[in-house]
Nucleic acid binder design. Structure first.
Lengths: 110, 110
DNA sequence: CCAATTTATTCTATATTGTATAGCTAATGT
DNA sequence: ACATTAGCTATACAATATAGAATAAATTGG
């Protein structure tokens, strides 16, 4: 029943991408942001499936924008993080921080 | 097929617990460390299943210690993180860091 | 030595996440 | 109208997360 308390690994990455992209976050840009920043290749299907789940949990919301005047420029579905989503990010970060605090091994290997 | 590149959310927490506990890391202490640090309640079964998976990927190794002279003190299976495991932690951290870099929203809500 | 008790690990089952591919839709250009 | 393009949806399957019951190996008390 009750959803999980912490963001899954990929959910976490995706929601951070939304925060970075602010008002220009939609499927394609989310994917680009992740690839550009981390070098990680992800399929577009993976992005949408994850966004869909985040939305089901109330961590993000979305609305369709107007079609842009370019070839194939159909309307985009823009996503943004909700307050509940921010809380989830912070909960996740807190846990990670408390587990890494004082662990110099980790940083030195970075 | 090919194992994943990044640590799953819980795998991450568990491996950090091992790093903290160093030579006294085994099922029970791992669980305690996580609960003590994060307040998160986890079943012992979840801990072992995860350790098993981490071991299958070569991120951790284990060996049984001698039974201790206490009631019910059967021998413990001690776990430690391998070099490969350290790399996985760092890869995961790097990705997270690159996605959070410059995002002050996050820290301010912590 | 047997039963009870205790610490620890293993087994098993199920829900949730991660991930890719293929297919569908709505625009524009010719 | 039809080709082309950008973007979204559907679907399927593998991997992870998670709990609970079962099993094992010690110790202690009679």
């Amino acid at each position: 029943m009750s959803g999980r308390e912490y963001l899954g690994e990929f959910e976490h990455i995706v929601i951070l991408a939304l925060l970075r992209l602010a008002d220009r976050a939609y499927g394609v840009t989310v994917r680009q942001e992740i690839e550009a920043r981390t070098g990680r290749e992800v399929s577009i299907g993976a992005i949408y499936a994850t966004l869909e789940r985040l939305q089901a949990k109330g961590y993000v919301k979305s609305q369709f924008g107007d079609p842009t005047p370019e070839r194939g420029g159909r309307s985009k579905r823009f996503f943004h993080v909700t307050a509940k989503g921010i809380s989830a990010v912070n909960r996740t970060h807190r846990a990670l921080r408390s587990m890494t605090a004082g662990l110099d091994l980790v940083r030195s290997y970075s």
